[in-house]
Design a protein around this nucleic acid. Sequence first.
DNA 1: TTAGTGATATCC
DNA 2: GATATCACTAAA
Length: 180
Amino acid sequence: MNGSPVRRLDAAFFQRDCLTVAPALVGKVLVHRLPDGTELRERIAETEAYRGTEDEACHAHKGRTPRNSMLWREGGTVYVYLCYGIHSLANVITGAAEAPQGVLLRAGYTTPGPGRLTKALQIDRTQNGLAITGDVLWFEDDGARPPILTAPRVGIGYAGEPWLSMPWRFLAGDVSSSNK
DNA sequence: TTAGTGATATCC
DNA sequence: GATATCACTAAA
C-alpha cells in the first residue's frame, strides 16, 4: 500500500516566491470538490508567473483595485477573474501578504487553454478568494516529476520589455501536444 | 483571420 | 453615464 503516496500541498508551499511555486505546480493535480461530493481533478501542464508591481504584465502593476486586491493576500489563496466576458481564469496567490504575485494556471494535461481548464474543473468567479488548501479546492502531489520547460509568457503584448521576454512560463515536458 | 462576450478601469 | 480594454476561444 502507499506505493504512490498522495499528499496535499499546504499553505507553506504557496508562501514562497512565485518563480519557485510556478514550476513546482507543473505536474501537480488540482482537485475541486463540488457541493454534491464529486471530485474533479486535472493535472497541471502549464503555468505562468506574475510577479509584483514592477511586472508590467501583472494585474498589480496598475495599482490595487477591488478586482485584483486578491494578489496582495498571502500565498494559498485562489484568484479567479473573468476575462473577455466569457472565460474564468484561475490564479494561485503566492508569496507573503503585501507581496502582489501569483501563478496563472494556463492548461491541464487534458485541457489546453486557461479558459477551458477552469471550465473543465467548473471553477468560476464564485470560487474567488477561496483557500487552495481548503476542503473544496486543493492541490495534490502524487509524486509525478515531469521535466519542466520554460518559455516567454504569451498574451501580454501590452507589456513592454523586459517583461515580455521573461521566461516565466512553465510547461510540462511530457505533454504530447505540440505546445508552441 | 475575425467576431463575440461582459466585467473593469478610466474618462468626462 | 460612456467608452476602451482585456492574461480567450471558436469559427472560418
